[in-house]
């Protein structure tokens, strides 16, 4: 099949950036979306042009590196799927496909489709952990955890930190990302001692980083490749207000 790609090219953070058209020909429908970009990039390099820069690493949907808007939807049209797991059989001959980077003030573009997501790391650094030094742990089975809580914690912990939630949100809000971590640790007994402090500092960092706020459109949940639930956001709202108003 043949496609027209409309790709966001931006040479650096200071550049304004623009959409550039590329015709890609003879695409095999078994290719992944990223492999299709590889093929285009090989052609560009052969012509001595700079290839389209995009983040990717594991290409099996777990590392969270890949990050691109495909026709206005993070990771493309398939639900619960990262861009690296999206395959070209999802498209048809003659399609025009827009490819853009995540756009958010807190995720400045580095080049083309590559953005700086270190704001997420700083949010985790401000409290997304249990303070336990290596060697201090008691026997793993000394602390039983209700199976349902463990499963719910896992559902939240499945977040891969890709940033699709921010990209999808009309307000570029990071609530789902932050809530996933707050909720993962908040549902486990290990997370209780720091529960109030954690939510306070993580939300405060989130706000300082320049993300928007939540207007409950739930686009984040729909875009999330790991289908993290917005119930986690409700839990974070509750934890935050409880810790603000309570002791």
């Amino acid at each position: 099949m043949n496609l027209t790609l409309k790709v966001w090219r931006q040479s650096g953070p200071q550049d304004k950036g623009k959409i550039v058209d590329y015709a890609v020909k003879d695409i095999n429908s078994h290719m992944s979306f990223l492999e299709m970009l590889d093929v285009l990039n090989e052609e560009l390099i052969a012509k001595g042009e700079e290839p389209i820069a995009f983040d990717h690493d594991c290409r099996e949907g777990i590392c969270g590196s890949c990050s691109m808007m495909i026709d206005g939807i993070p990771h493309g049209p398939d639900r619960g799927t990262t861009a690296c797991q999206l395959h070209m059989r999802r498209f048809k001959d003659g399609d025009v496909v827009y490819v853009e980077p995540w756009q958010a003030k807190a995720f400045p573009v580095i080049k083309d489709l590559v953005v700086d997501r270190s704001a997420f790391d700083r949010i985790i650094q401000s409290g997304g952990f249990v303070s336990i030094n290596t060697g201090n742990a008691q026997d793993a089975n000394a602390l039983p955890v209700n199976k349902d809580s463990a499963e719910a914690a896992f559902d939240a912990a499945a977040c891969i930190g890709c940033g699709a939630c921010v990209a999808a949100c009309p307000n570029a809000s990071a609530m789902l990302f932050v809530a996933a971590k707050v909720s993962h640790l908040g549902k486990l007994p290990q997370g209780q001692p720091e529960r109030a402090k954690r939510v306070q500092s993580m939300v405060s960092t989130m706000d300082t980083e320049g993300f928007g706020s939540c207007t409950n459109t739930f686009e984040c949940e729909a875009a999330c490749p790991k289908e993290i639930s917005v119930t986690n956001i409700a839990q974070m709202n509750r934890d935050y207000m409880q810790s603000s108003l309570g002791d």
């Binding site: 827009y98 853009e100 958010a104 003030k105 009309p170 307000n171 928007g212 706020s213 739930f218 686009e219």
Partner: peptide, 19 residues
């Protein structure tokens, strides 16, 4: 206002999934 500032560059292709 904060939300507007949080996305200074909008997308060329505007789409929402389900909102």
């Amino acid at each position: 206002r904060q939300n507007r500032l949080a996305r200074p560059q909008t997308y060329a292709y505007q789409q929402s999934i389900q909102a």
